[in-house]
Design a protein around this nucleic acid. Sequence first.
DNA 1: TTCGAAAAAATGTGATATCATTTTTCGGAT
DNA 2: ATCCGAAAAATGATATCACATTTTTTCGAA
Lengths: 231, 231
Amino acid sequence: MISNGELNIPDIPAVSGTTTQEYVYERLRNAIMLGAIEPGTSLTMRGLADCLGLSPTPVREAVRRLSSEHAIQVKDNRRMTVPLMTSDRFEELIALRIAIEVHTAKRALPFISDVVIEKLTEIDDRMDGFVSERDLDQLTLLNQDFHRTLYTVNPAQASMPIIESIWLQLGPFQRQILTTVAENYEVDRHKEILAALSTRDVIALEEAITNDISDGAWKSGRNLLDETAPA
Amino acid sequence: MISNGELNIPDIPAVSGTTTQEYVYERLRNAIMLGAIEPGTSLTMRGLADCLGLSPTPVREAVRRLSSEHAIQVKDNRRMTVPLMTSDRFEELIALRIAIEVHTAKRALPFISDVVIEKLTEIDDRMDGFVSERDLDQLTLLNQDFHRTLYTVNPAQASMPIIESIWLQLGPFQRQILTTVAENYEVDRHKEILAALSTRDVIALEEAITNDISDGAWKSGRNLLDETAPA
DNA sequence: TTCGAAAAAATGTGATATCATTTTTCGGAT
DNA sequence: ATCCGAAAAATGATATCACATTTTTTCGAA
C-alpha cells in the first residue's frame, strides 16, 4: 500500500541546471510555507518519494535539510510531520522575529537609497491590489519580498537565512491566520516602514517593524490559538 | 588517487543508537568548530567518505546539512571549503550574536533559579582552571556550555538552534583568535552575567552579555583581521 | 620548453538492492 | 466482540552501481 496517497504537493517550476534534491527541497518548502501539507499529517520518506515519483535518496536529503531547519519534525520512530504550533512556541517565534528583523533593519538603514525605497513602494502597491482580491499566497509572497528586499540592501548579510528559517517555521501557521482573519491584514504598517526609511529615522523604523510583525501575526495568532486550544 | 589524503578529522565517540549520517555530521561539525579543517582547504564528498571509511551517501547528507548552515561553502563546481572569514562578515556575525543572545538571555531571565545560577557558577569555575592551562578546546566547549545552560532555562526555546549555527560559523575563526590572543580571554564577564542574574537586573544582563561577546571576540577579531588582510 | 587537445581519472548525483527494525495486518483463543 | 501474538508488509539507512560532467593528466606539435 502506498502511504501519503491523498497528499497534494503543489508543483513548482523546476529550475534548469539544479539538482533533484534541490528541486525537492524547494517544492516541499513551498508546500509547507503555503500550508499545503497540513501540520500533524504523517509523512514517510518513501511515501513522499512515491508521491513525487522519485527515488528515496534525494527526498531524504531534502527532508533532512528541512528537519534541521525545524520545518519538519522527526517523531519518535519512523514518522515525520510538519510540527503543530503551540501558543508558547508561537509567542517565542514572533518575539524572535521582532528581535532579529529589527536588528537587521537597523543595519540595513545606512545602505538605504531612493532607488530601494522606490522598489519597496512598488512592492507595497502591488500588495494593496492582492489585499482586495484576498489572494493569500500572493500576499504572503509579496510580504516576504518586501522584508527581504529591505534587509538584503546590506551586502554583508548573515541574518537573512535565519530570518527565512523563522518564516518557514511560522509559515504553515501564518497561513492559517491569514485565512481566518484576512480582513485584519495590516499593510499600512509597510507605509510606516517606508516613512521611517525616507527620513532615516532609526527609532521610527524599529517601531514600525515591530508593529508590522506584531499586528499581522501576534494578535491574530493569539486569537486563533485561543480558539483551537483553549482550556 | 585519494583526495584529502592529509586531512585530519578528529574522531569523536559514536553515540550508540544513532545513524551514520548523524555521526558524520557531529564529527565534521566538531572538526570545523575546533578548526581542525582549515578554512579554504578543498574538500570533496568522496574524499571525505574515503577519509572516514564510509560510503558517499551518509557523508553527502551530513555535508549538505552543514552547507545549509553555512558551515561549509559549496564552491562554483565540484569543490567545497570551510569558508574564509572576512572583516565585514565577522562584524556582521558578532553583531548578530549580540542581538540574538541578548534577546534570548532577557527571555531566560524569568526562568532563572538559584539552582541554575549555581550550575552556571560551577561551569565558570571550571573555566578558570582551563584558562591558566591554556586549554583552548575545553575553554571553547565550556564557554558554549555556559551560554547554552543560561539560554535553555526557557523551555519554549526557538533561538538556541540559531545561536548554535552562528557559533558554528564563527567557530573556526574564533579558534584562531583564541590561539593568537589567549591571554585576552575575558572570563570576568561571566561573573558580571552571574551578578546580573542574581539581582534579576535586565539592564545589567544586557550589558554583561554584550560585553562578554564583544570583549572575547570583537576586539581580538578586529586585530587579527587587520593583521591578515590590512590594506 | 610551452601550449593545447585528447585520453584518463575522479566526482556528484540519483536509482537500486539489501538488511535490520518497526509497523501493520490477521486469525485464533478467551 | 476483544485481545494477543505471529506473520506479512513497510520503512529508514547505507552500500553499491551507473551515468553524465568535470577535472586532471598525458603527450605530441609548435
